[in-house]
Simulated scan of single mutants.
Amino acid sequence: MSGMVNILMVIEAEIATTHLLEQIMKACGVHGVGHRVQLLGKLQIGDITPDTIPMFVRCADPLVLPWAQLLVDANRSYAYYIDDNFWRIVGHTPLATYYRHPIIRKSLEFAISHADAVIVNSSELCRFVSSFNARTAVLPTFFDFSLIDGVQPSSTDEIRIGFAGSPSRIDDLDLISPVIELILEKYPKTIFEFAGVLPKGVSIGPRVRFFPHTGDYNAYIKFQATRNWAIGLAPLMDHEANRSKTDNKYREYGACHVAGIYSNIPPYSDVVENSVCGLLVDGAQSSWFDALAALIERPDKRTILANNAFEHVRARYDVSHVSHDWARFFKRLDERRSRDIRPLKQSSLDLKKFYRRLERLKIHLAVVYQEGGCRLVIQRIVRKIRPSR
């Protein structure tokens, strides 16, 4: 089919994933695939014209359920993008509690199982999600080199060892936290830098730096490129949720000429050639110490790994190349969608949205209660109703 394919990205909030996805969608523009972005909470029927294909991005909020039901009833095509295994999140964090809630699971599973296409970026996640929808496709990950064009790394004689991530990554840092003090003692020129999350039991000091988390991916990747890390850390605890993640750290370290040390599990074991583009290590404390020591003591090895990774990332992940695959996928989806569509009914949507908003409120209160009891619930309510100054 000729003409522009119109994709409406529907997101719950602006996070790193949505910023990344916008990069590939913008790159698809030159291939005849246009896109717009709308928040799920502000989505209106008028946003979904007959020639528009909605793509729900990581949406599990109860509000996604009435929208998915409305589209199914009207014989409208939609896609769903997911890059994490929300069913297998470990621990008892608020995030884990949220995704274990029956209503969240119901919304997530209905939206995924009825999508005309589910997009993932890893074969591990594809195997899991395919149990809900056989129309699941693995599309390649990417990196937008334009984000760091002209960015100059800061000049330093320090051997900086870095990690950046969200607070949800704190348990993964347990793999490397025991070796930090040992490395600092043995190698006086080493500095550890953490952005967004600090390992448990590790204190900020002259040789341990902390930088606040930012949800702006463009600013984050520029920050990483300027820090001039000699070594980048990519620890992942070995469990199903982590095995379903994408290879973000490898792409970022490679693009920024950083020698990376990666947990020897998917996604990294799928793409990193050990001792060529990075180092793969198991979960033992001694393995992380030995890998760090090897790269600290051999700057020539760091340079080789960093250069090889850069060339590999440039050849395999450059967004301008990868966008061809994504655009082809959306064009095939557009060709398959039914032209025998029905109008979207506002009346059937309004009542469902009302109930889902009540459910969403109950879920958030339950999560906050588990996090901090009645006191935190009251604080959050007061904060919501207090007039702004």
Results as ranks from 00 to 15, higher is better:
2 S>Y: 14
4 M>V: 13
4 M>T: 15
11 I>N: 03
13 A>G: 02
14 E>F: 11
15 I>N: 07
21 L>A: 14
25 M>L: 15
27 A>R: 07
28 C>P: 05
31 H>E: 06
33 V>T: 11
34 G>N: 12
42 K>V: 09
43 L>S: 05
44 Q>W: 12
47 D>I: 03
47 D>V: 06
53 I>M: 13
55 M>D: 06
56 F>R: 00
58 R>L: 05
59 C>Y: 00
60 A>L: 06
60 A>M: 13
61 D>Y: 02
61 D>C: 09
65 L>W: 07
66 P>H: 08
67 W>G: 06
67 W>R: 06
68 A>N: 06
70 L>W: 01
70 L>H: 08
75 N>L: 09
76 R>D: 03
80 Y>H: 04
82 I>H: 00
84 D>M: 04
92 H>D: 14
93 T>R: 04
95 L>F: 14
99 Y>I: 04
100 R>S: 10
100 R>C: 11
102 P>H: 06
105 R>V: 12
107 S>E: 08
108 L>V: 04
109 E>S: 12
110 F>Y: 15
113 S>N: 14
114 H>I: 01
114 H>N: 13
117 A>I: 15
118 V>W: 01
122 S>C: 01
123 S>R: 13
128 F>T: 14
135 R>C: 07
136 T>N: 01
137 A>L: 12
138 V>S: 03
138 V>N: 01
140 P>W: 03
141 T>I: 13
142 F>D: 05
149 D>R: 13
150 G>W: 09
152 Q>Y: 14
153 P>S: 00
153 P>K: 10
154 S>R: 11
155 S>W: 02
166 S>A: 08
168 S>C: 07
168 S>E: 09
169 R>N: 13
169 R>K: 10
175 L>W: 01
179 V>Y: 06
180 I>F: 11
182 L>M: 09
186 K>C: 14
189 K>L: 09
189 K>S: 14
192 F>M: 12
197 V>E: 03
200 K>I: 10
202 V>L: 13
202 V>Y: 03
203 S>K: 15
206 P>V: 02
215 G>P: 00
215 G>I: 07
215 G>M: 11
222 K>F: 03
224 Q>E: 12
228 N>M: 11
236 L>G: 01
240 E>D: 11
240 E>T: 06
242 N>R: 13
246 T>R: 14
248 N>A: 10
252 E>Y: 14
256 C>K: 09
259 A>D: 07
267 P>Y: 00
269 S>V: 04
270 D>I: 12
278 G>P: 04
281 V>P: 02
282 D>V: 10
286 S>E: 15
295 L>W: 00
297 E>Q: 11
301 K>M: 15
301 K>P: 05
304 I>R: 07
305 L>S: 12
306 A>W: 00
310 F>E: 03
313 V>I: 04
314 R>N: 07
314 R>W: 11
317 Y>R: 11
318 D>I: 02
322 V>M: 04
329 F>S: 02
333 L>F: 02
334 D>V: 03
339 R>F: 14
341 I>R: 08
344 L>M: 05
346 Q>I: 08
349 L>E: 03
350 D>A: 13
350 D>C: 10
354 F>G: 09
360 R>I: 08
361 L>E: 07
363 I>Y: 12
363 I>E: 01
363 I>R: 07
364 H>D: 15
367 V>L: 01
368 V>E: 06
368 V>C: 01
373 G>D: 09
376 L>P: 00
377 V>M: 15
381 I>Q: 10
382 V>Y: 02
387 P>W: 03
